[in-house]
Design a protein around this nucleic acid. Structure first.
Length: 567
RNA sequence: CGGGGCGUAGCUCAGUAUGGUUAGAGUACUUGCUUUGGGAGCAAGGGGCCGGAGGUUCGAGUCCUCUCGCCCCGACCA
């Protein structure tokens, strides 16, 4: 490609709306242009990057035997009514009617459509397993699109679905997909972590997220400093505490604790570690129909993890509750305890099971119990409710957990029969019995990956593309095109790169040196060959974008050097 | 969906508190000359329904009402 004939509208100023580096540089360097909230046009450079990522995905999917399909973007609303997701998705589903007044939605994801294409066609266990996928535009009418390509309404996603006769076979495929996704991200040159994720309300038996590590990531991860373990904080686990604070000596008693409401006050009042106090967090659990207040009991030294809490009671949402509402139930904030608790539904954290020497509220203003043995609680609901903190022990090894930020670029999920059962997508097993397909789903955000690469690889000058994602590997820059010998040399080098199948662009624009250099750095070609006054001494220079290193090489040895650098 | 902010040249923004000739700057663009290793200089140009609609006024970019759009914080995000 000749730069003079390309369409690469670079700008010196950032669009005022851009906040993230990826948004700023992808806009400034002319990869994408915003159309409306959450909608972007991909300009020639952006399209090239998108296609490179797609190609790598396709290659890895082919290696796993997954089959590419392409489903209609416009989907009949009936399918969504059948699965019950038309209500669940709500306003995120963009709906419209055709000329015959039939209702359609723009596909936000394609579980229903995928199930529909195999339903009544795959009818025997002998035809299983099957893994089909597509790389396709999706549309979700997000309440608040933001961060450029990171959270757009229209975006490109690879979504794959596998169908199995047994859960063992699903497990095998799930592992194969995890390995394939790992290879894809490795090939893209990204630093990432595969983490355990919250399976959420949808259930299923396993869910993992692929997180590109970047400070601007929207998700917080707990990762082990020693082993591979990592999890979204919504699902992170920790090892049992190894250092247990010394237990206070106390026999069971009711104690007057005037106006001692917070864990901190309580801990100071009794001179005990918060570990031995019982924290009560009351929230209103919201369900499909109605809501109810629920109390979550955890150790005073811990924090409640709301997603875990929500899952423990099967709620759609947890919302704050007012003191007035608490008073109505007959609870006194600051003095809520678990013993003889009959006023409210409650869940205990696993770590409070059989706890002794505890201090907890007496369910009466200004009184706490001390020396409480929670093993007397008997048969009450327990669940993992606590947020993993920095420094907690890894559940798999001796390491410590750290927090880091990640961009979710992939999510793989064992669905089981969540969709196949309601959609009546069934096959006959070996015994001739009708069974719903056991399914897995594997998503990867292709357009989000474009942004993720830049979030992880940029500097104050602009983009730094990895070798596999760069729109062009080499930029041959002619410092001054009026120098005929320089231009001729560059033309020849450009042609040679072409014969060696190295993607190159020739910057033959009638611009000054500084202007072209700034563009080269902003766009982020991995290598820029500077053909200029050094050529008079028989040399050219190669700018290595990632390191800003300027390598001077003999003019007739450039190809060798480039080949070596590209690797 | 709650709270806040912003819409003026392709882009980034002044101007709006206190209404008053022909609406500005920088940048980008066009033409000419000079310059040519880090976003060049001089000169001359083109480019605007001041987001839209209604109102107040002799007169509205500026005041009032209503709308539409975009951004930020939060809620939400299989």
């Amino acid at each position: 490609m000749r730069f003079s004939r390309a369409y690469i509208p670079t700008t010196k100023e950032s669009p005022k709306d851009a906040q993230l580096p990826s948004h700023i540089y992808l806009s400034r360097a002319g990869f994408v242009a915003q159309v409306a909230s959450g909608l972007y046009n991909f300009l020639p450079l952006g399209k090239r990057v998108l296609r490179k990522i797609e190609t790598i995905i396709n290659e890895e999917m082919a290696a796993c035997g997954a089959l590419e399909v392409d489903l209609s973007f416009v989907t009949p609303a009936e399918l969504w009514q059948e699965s019950g997701r038309i209500e669940k998705f709500g306003k995120e589903l963009l709906r419209f009617r055709d000329r015959k007044d039939n209702l359609f939605v723009l596909g936000p994801t394609h579980e229903e459509m995928m199930v529909s294409i195999v339903r009544n066609r795959i009818t025997s266990y002998k035809q299983l397993p099957l893994n089909v996928y597509q790389v396709k535009t999706k549309f979700r009418d997000e309440a608040r699109p933001r961060f450029g390509l990171m959270r757009a309404r229209e975006f490109v996603m690879k979504d794959g679905y596998s169908f199995h006769a047994t859960t063992e076979d699903l497990d095998r495929e799930f592992d194969a997909m995890e390995a394939a996704y790992k290879r894809i991200l490795e090939r893209l040159g990204l630093t990432f972590r595969i983490v355990e994720a919250d399976s959420g309300a949808i259930g299923g038996t396993g869910s993992k997220e692929l997180m590109v590590l970047a400070s601007s990531g929207e998700d917080t991860l707990a990762v082990c400093d020693t082993c591979e373990y990592g999890a979204n904080v919504e699902a992170a686990r920790r090892s049992p505490r190894v250092v247990i604070p010394e237990a206070p000596e106390a026999t069971f008693a009711k104690f007057k604790t005037p106006n001692i409401k917070s864990i901190e006050d309580l801990s100071n009042f009794f001179h005990v570690d918060p570990y031995y106090t019982l924290k009560a967090v009351v929230l209103r659990a919201v369900y499909e129909e109605g809501s109810e207040p629920v109390c979550f009991f955890i150790r005073g030294c811990d924090e409640l993890q709301e997603v875990k809490a929500r899952n423990s009671v099967g709620a759609i949402d947890l919302v704050d509750i007012s003191e007035a509402e608490l008073a109505e139930i007959g609870l006194v904030p600051g003095f809520i305890g678990a013993l003889d608790q009959d006023k409210i539904r409650f869940v205990m954290d696993n770590d409070t099971r059989n706890a002794t020497s505890m201090i907890c509220g007496a369910n009466e203003a200004d009184y706490h119990f001390v020396g409480v043995d929670l093993s007397v609680m008997g048969d009450v609901p327990f669940a993992d409710l606590v947020a993993v903190a920095i420094g907690d022990g890894c559940p798999h090894c001796e390491g410590k957990l750290l927090h880091t930020k990640g961009i979710e670029v992939g999510h793989i999920f064992k669905l089981g029969t969540v969709y196949s059962a309601p959609l009546k997508a069934e096959f006959l097993d070996e015994n001739g019995r009708s069974q719903p397909f056991i399914m897995g789903t594997y998503g990867m955000g292709v357009s989000r990956l474009v942004a993720a690469v830049i979030e992880q690889h940029h500097d104050e000058k602009g983009c730094i593309w990895t070798h596999t994602t760069a729109p062009y590997m080499v930029n041959v820059m002619v410092s001054n095109i009026k120098e005929e010998a320089h231009l001729a040399y560059a033309e020849e080098l450009y042609a040679t790169l072409g014969t060696h199948k190295i993607e190159a662009i020739l910057d033959d624009r009638k611009e000054r040196f500084g202007f072209k250099m700034s563009d080269a750095e902003l766009i982020g070609f991995p290598f820029t060959v500077i053909v200029g006054k050094e050529l008079n001494n028989g040399h050219v220079q190669i700018l290595v974008r990632a390191t800003s290193e300027m390598i001077t090489v003999d003019a007739d040895k450039v190809m060798e050097k480039l080949t070596e650098l590209i690797g």
